[in-house]
Design a protein around this nucleic acid. Structure first.
Lengths: 334, 334
DNA sequence: AGTCTGAACGTAAACGTTTACATGTCTTTA
DNA sequence: TAAAGACATGTAAACGTTTACGTTCAGACT
């Protein structure tokens, strides 16, 4: 082990015969220091194995270089790989800018979510990127005075920056594709409509139907909890109304749908067509390969992080709202 | 918006007519305070919308309540869902103990990894849980003076705490199962053997063969980069030596294997049996459902976090080494 | 010779907590 | 009634940086 005592900038200063200010300035390059002194300081830092204390720096400079990402990301059961890709995107730009990422899981529940926000406290983070669990909550009073950017979903009446996916257009496109193949009884399955995404997706679905002169049937629209089980059970009820196609807007629920079909030996797409949400490598080797809507998850993260950094740089700049387009990938399941 | 000025413990103290010490103590419950004063302080905190400054707290108390997890976890392409489940496990116990989790991605590359460790600096984290990219590196000089626990993999000559999976036993079991079904030409495909996991897995494979009196053939053993592409290409070369079964010890590479089989219309398990690593929901709806080795990923995370917290609590306690057992799940692909 | 300018660096006050130590006020006891 | 304890709180020094000001000193200009 090395020296157990913690080495501070003071020790370095003493060892190099300079002031703490000088040491700080050579570390940060924040004012001119002669080559000679620089060398001495670096030498001293090496000799003593000095390491910056980020906490002290944060306290004084009021910047932590930490961004939090709060989403239903880690819960083991309802594993939503979508948000993991988003996290990867966020991380990639944060890293380039020497920021850290702390991950918080909302469990898709308002209570957990509020807890997490509280735990983040103030000063600990420079910004929060979040996918809110509900669009009906008032989050504002929970936040500290860091910037917040909403990702994937936006609460009502928010005037924060946000970056989301254009769910309506692509959903409409997916349903139109099904209609084009002759389907008239198209079921719709999704998570709770406390999410803005759900709202948009159902809107796209309905618009496609109505433009094709097909009357929407409430029996064919099923909205429930986001879980594999729930996906399975809701499929069961939907099937009683004999759809010829099913549009499921969540990849976790989609697994429930596929389990059901597999178990009941209902062949896809012969007996029923399936269109799901979210593209992952495995959707290509399911049986049959799934037709999916590919969301730009990584890019969503990248954009959100970029917006965040800009906002940090310039608190007063106008609100940004980005709407990325998703992509329909047609494979054998439809 | 609320007051833009930052409220400190001093403001609260003044507003409640007590000292900062008292405020601190009611916040932390660290010494007796009369009910009356408590009320006053809470009132003041509410009135002023006070929020703890965790950074200042960390600086003074020398504890950040932050644990970092460093693993090849977020890289978008080589997405390793295994480590995400691990992260979920870690998070679940950290959360209960009011710790935060910061995620760092090593990209499975030594350089990235070293960078990340340096970026964590000192004092910023109370501990580091990591899955080292190589067993041959000397990490010790990179670490600060926080505890480190190795997860899933262990560098040579480490005397740190660690929690890993018993890869050898379960790999042997899997290969024995294949042998039991009459297979004699069993291919082995895995990531680089700079990983301890690879070492153990190949050992299990070899031991099963040798105990069954089957001679190992180096042409049937393929070791390469962990990626989908690499999995695909290595399968291609392996197939030239006509294996009747293939044991692939990484889920990302396994996708490459399955793509290959699908593309070449090689039917599984009729023409070749496949056993893969890591159980996820989707392995059940692939075509055919995959036989896999199910690693206790979540539990791995839980254990690692528990060990971490114990170590923080008691720096002097004896080294812990945990070896969790994995589970062979036999399905149609074998 | 005095003043000025710029280069290079030093001094010390913050940042917002925690915490060792000190203080004051009651009650109890001899 | 004075000393002793218990009870409840206050004082102020840290923690390790950053940074607004000050300082020193050498050379250039009047």
């Amino acid at each position: 082990m090395s020296d157990s005592k913690n080495i501070s900038i003071k020790d370095v200063a003493k060892h190099a015969n300079v002031s703490t200010a000088t040491v700080s300035h050579v570390i940060n390059g924040t004012r001119f220091v002669s080559e000679d002194t620089k060398r001495k300081v670096h030498q001293a830092m090496n000799d003593l194995n000095y390491r910056i204390n980020f906490v002290a720096r944060s306290l004084r400079s009021r910047k932590s270089y930490v961004i939090a990402f709060l989403a239903p990301i880690l819960a083991s059961e309802t594993s939503n790989y979508f948000f993991m890709s988003v996290a990867a995107g966020i991380q990639s730009v944060l890293k380039q800018n020497h920021y850290h990422l702390v991950l918080s899981d909302s469990h898709e529940e308002a209570e957990y979510e509020a807890d997490e926000i509280r735990m983040l406290g103030s000063q600990m983070i420079d910004g929060l990127i979040m996918a809110p669990a509900s669009r009906e909550l008032d989050y504002e009073h929970l936040f500290g005075d860091y910037p917040v950017v909403y990702l994937d979903r936006v609460p009502n009446n928010s005037n924060r920056d946000c970056v989301v996916v254009d769910n309506k257009t692509v959903s409409k496109e997916a349903v139109q594709m099904l209609i084009g193949k002759g389907h008239k009884r198209i079921a719709y399955l999704s998570g709770p409509n406390t999410l803005t995404t759900t709202e948009e997706r159902v809107a796209g679905y309905l618009e496609a139907l109505s433009e094709a002169g097909i009357e929407a049937e409430s029996d064919l629209i099923s909205i429930g909890e986001v879980s594999l089980d729930s996906g399975y059970k809701l499929t069961e009820s939907l099937m009683r109304h004999e759809p010829t196609a099913i549009f499921v807007t969540d990849n976790v629920m989609a697994m429930g749908v596929m389990f059901y079909m597999q178990e009941k030996k209902i062949s896809v797409p012969e007996q029923i067509a399936v269109v799901a949400y979210d593209e992952f490598q495995w959707t290509r080797i399911t049986s049959p390969p799934l037709t999916v809507i590919e969301q730009p998850a990584f890019e969503l993260g990248v954009k959100a992080a970029e917006v965040m950094l800009e906002r940090i740089d310039n608190a007063g700049s106008p609100r940004q709202e980005h709407r990325l387009t998703a992509n329909l990938v047609v494979r054998q399941s439809s």
